[in-house]
Write a protein that binds this DNA or RNA. Structure first.
Lengths: 246, 246
DNA sequence: TTATGTGAACATTTTCACAGCG
DNA sequence: CGCTGTGAAAATGTTCACATAA
């Protein structure tokens, strides 16, 4: 119904793109499609069917087609999707062509790993600054970046126009760090500390809690164990590949 | 309608508990409630209202009450929930009282951090073994555990009855590691490698992709930027505290 | 009177099944 | 024909608003 023209194409990054408002569930899957597409492109594929891409991304093909239809995608009936074109489309929608600057606060165990995580750079992000409150860590060089004191955050954030802040501190410090980030004008925060952050409504927070994922798995282990006590097959279930919902 | 009696209580861990089948969305939030409850308990609270717990967990109170009602919880009308009792309930449901054994495969940057992550031990998991394919890493001691070669996984998994395997390898090795875990009888996998794993239907896989979260934030940054070009308030939106859906 | 527990309304997401384009 | 794009149906999740119990 609306697929012929939509917003703007990757080429014209200038104007106001009449931004398509995608369902949140779709947005969360786009990065997965993108990864699969890059993989296919490296393998030399020029086009891919919804079936093929869906398999590579671990979803079913109907969902994939529906998702792509929301961005008004350029599939060809009877053929499939142009891999390179779709990569550009998705990268544009996700804003990955803007090479956003990211800073990381807290260089403990996890912060160290994140600072060196190649997946950030390879997917359109520049880690431009590391901060910590601990003076003993200030000055340390990780992956070519020098750790600075958190007091410098506000100044550096402005200088480097940092778009996203990553919090990898203990939970007790996370809210204070979030406040500093917000004061510095950062409007997107990725929080690894196991706590809830209070931020103004214009700031987006996403949370990753490593232990939560384990606990969800534990629930399913517990359930499986309680079921084996009952009669019936042994294995079971509906036979989906990725059994637990993401 | 069914709240008086339900399955079994934490105390009686023996029988088959007529396992309540909770909505997936509810399960995913239970760990968050649990964290908030522990926090409240440490602060000395004996009871908490749905309003109070909801705020501490970052959800609204209606959702919290609905979630807890699914596990047939023991709130008292006019008063609230008994903190200690609710902790026991949720820990029982999640199977956290069983102190599951976890192994970690891949001790690179991220694996190192995970091996030392205190959040695992503190929430009912025992990291009992570390593995790597790289002979140079075998023998290294991390957090009191010696890294073993992946060839030993099958034997060790049986000895230690490992319930959950965590994959922190590069994506190219992840499927092979998953195959080894499955062969060793592990039925729950937490995958940090950015790739899709194929496993039998009785095995649960959950995935954490650090870069995906950044890409979702990037999308919202992109959208915000394209909206500021338009007229209207400036700040905006509906004023929710955690603006981006989890 | 207070705050839980819950039907019923609403919203979102997934799946189905097929029309229609290449 | 094959495969995309999409209405319509089904399933799942959230919010409302109030009956109900302490």
């Amino acid at each position: 119904m609306s697929q012929q023209r939509h917003g703007s194409t990757p080429g014209d990054a200038g104007g106001v793109p009449a931004f398509p408002d995608l369902p949140e569930a779709t947005i969360a899957r786009l990065p997965e499609y993108l990864r699969a597409l890059h993989h296919l492109a490296e393998a030399g594929a020029e086009t891919v069917s919804s079936e093929g891409l869906a398999a590579a991304a671990g979803v079913n093909s109907a969902k994939l087609r529906k998702d792509l239809s929301h961005l008004g995608s350029y599939g060809t009936r009877g053929v499939g999707y142009d891999v390179a074109l779709l990569v550009d489309q998705i990268e544009y929608i996700l804003g990955l062509d803007e090479n956003r600057a990211v800073c990381l606060v807290g260089v403990g165990n996890l912060g160290h790993a994140l600072a060196g995580y190649a997946g950030f750079a390879s997917r359109g992000f520049r880690v431009v600054a590391l901060f910590d409150a601990d003076r003993k860590k200030v000055g340390e060089v990780i992956n070519g970046l020098t750790v600075r004191h958190i007091g410098e955050l506000e100044r550096v954030a402005a200088e480097e126009s940092i778009a996203i802040g990553v919090i990898a501190t203990p939970p007790g410090s996370a809210q204070a760090v979030a406040d500093v980030l917000v004061a510095a004008g950062v409007t997107s925060i990725l929080n690894f500390a196991p706590c809830v952050l209070a931020v103004p409504p214009n700031v987006d927070v996403r949370k990753v809690d490593l232990a939560i994922e384990l606990q969800i798995l534990s629930f399913h282990e517990h359930r499986k164990a309680s079921l084996t006590a009952l009669p019936g097959g042994g294995g079971d279930a509906t036979g989906d590949q990725e059994a637990v919902g993401s």
